[in-house]
Design a binder for these strands. Structure first.
Lengths: 136, 136
DNA sequence: ATGATAAGTGAGCAC
DNA sequence: GTGCTCACTTATCAT
């Protein structure tokens, strides 16, 4: 519990032996820390506390940066997706318009063919590609 | 040219008189700077150069941050626009689909009405909303 | 006490 | 030398 130095002998990380305990200082609970600090010169204690704060801040800064970065990344990705979706919708739209034109034409043709039967009210106004809207 | 201090008497900006020349140090051309530096103790000269670098860096950092910020801002705005455009396209799409359905129906009705005339080939298969595609 | 962020500084890359 | 950006520190704010 109170062993500060060299709990770990195998250290593959690229850290000098001087800063090995940094992680411990930062991680330690406040209670453990205070217990430890009482057994030191008040000057050193203050230094340790300050260092702990700095180390934590370093971490906060890092995660803040990462957050910022991934936010931009997400926005970029999202933008690409939206753009893709838009072009897809535009294609669908184009396709629908074309289909619609086709049906209007076909309707017009049929109407022309069928005109002799029903009451020939306004069927004369059925030009090549301009027919009035259906009611529903 | 070589007047360093107090060229400006009116200073509305919130700067202490100590840092007034900072802007000058930073702005001065290299030639002017060197001319000035030659008339100083090499130690002070080095300090000035270092400070110039620091001041410039401060500016670079600031503009870098602004750039980053406005980039995110632009992405957000762009995203909103894209989203808006998408919902618009979706509405257009919906509208077209509906219109298309209407025309298909109307065509089907007319076809049913006109069926006694032409060859009654498959018009019996014309159910409520299911008609075959037109060729074009 | 802890977490977050803006601003300043140093280090290092690219031109 | 200049400009840029990353990582770190400091100051400051909110919880």
């Amino acid at each position: 519990m109170t062993t500060i130095k060299h709990d770990i002998s195998e250290n593959d990380e690229s850290e000098e032996s001087l800063s090995i305990d940094d992680h411990q200082i930062m991680t330690m609970s406040v209670k453990e820390l205070n217990t430890l600090l009482k057994s030191m010169k008040p000057n050193d204690a203050a230094n340790i506390k300050r260092r702990r704060r700095i180390l934590k801040n370093k971490g906060y800064a890092a995660s803040s940066r990462h957050r910022q970065t991934s936010m931009v990344g997400n926005l970029s990705v999202e933008r690409s997706q939206l753009v893709r979706q838009i072009s897809q919708l535009q294609h669908e739209n184009e396709s629908l318009s074309q289909e619609l034109r086709g049906w209007k034409q076909r309707y017009s043709d049929l109407q022309l063919l069928a005109s002799p039967i029903g009451t020939v009210s306004q069927s004369t106004a059925a030009k090549s590609n301009n027919v009035k809207e259906p009611s529903h």
